[in-house]
Design a protein around this nucleic acid. Sequence first.
DNA 1: CCTTTTGGTTTATATTATAAACCAATTTAT
DNA 2: ATAAATTGGTTTATAATATAAACCAAAAGG
Lengths: 97, 97
Amino acid sequence: MNIDNIPEAFSVTLRLKIISSLVSSSKTFNELRETTQATQGNLSVQLTKLETWGYITSSKVIEKKRTKSTYELTSFGLSQFEEYVALLQAVLDSNMS
Amino acid sequence: MNIDNIPEAFSVTLRLKIISSLVSSSKTFNELRETTQATQGNLSVQLTKLETWGYITSSKVIEKKRTKSTYELTSFGLSQFEEYVALLQAVLDSNMS
DNA sequence: CCTTTTGGTTTATATTATAAACCAATTTAT
DNA sequence: ATAAATTGGTTTATAATATAAACCAAAAGG
């Protein structure tokens, strides 16, 4: 990763919030809704994108006869996030004059 | 700054490239065009936005009877960039389990 | 059963990033 | 002289995409 190919995952605030929220632990759809304050539709769309890109995985579980989706950051997603932050930090560090 | 109000300045790759490029030194329009590989129109639009938001300043100088614009990162722009990176780093650090 | 709630997805709209077209001034070529 | 090309951009049209509104199915409550 370099400044010329920053992944799309980090360019939308909601996606960044989702990723940030999942760093500490997996979350359900509604937990993410609370922490991100996003609408359901928007959340659904962005989760689908992050999953398509391999940043998160989801698993549907039937709980009390209702589906409950849980979202988890993949190791790829975490490492991309770490790389992204390291890249920006390096830009700042290179300025040390 | 927190995860709920990430400035728009950082959500577009070209804007992030411009800011990154200006961290080390001021640059002219065409120097930015080379380092960012952007089209003139796109570069112009994003520079105007960054200037409107106070991230950069521009100065037009007449050199060999031609205008030459130079763009410089403001101290506000730099500190916002630093805050942004620190914020993301804090998210990662908070995961230390 | 009829309404409400849960747990989402699909689709339409609004925003905005990008590229194409344009413009004025200057230089170079004829 | 003046036509063509270059410099240094801005304006505008279009393409992409983020967001919100509408929708849907299944279950629970009244």
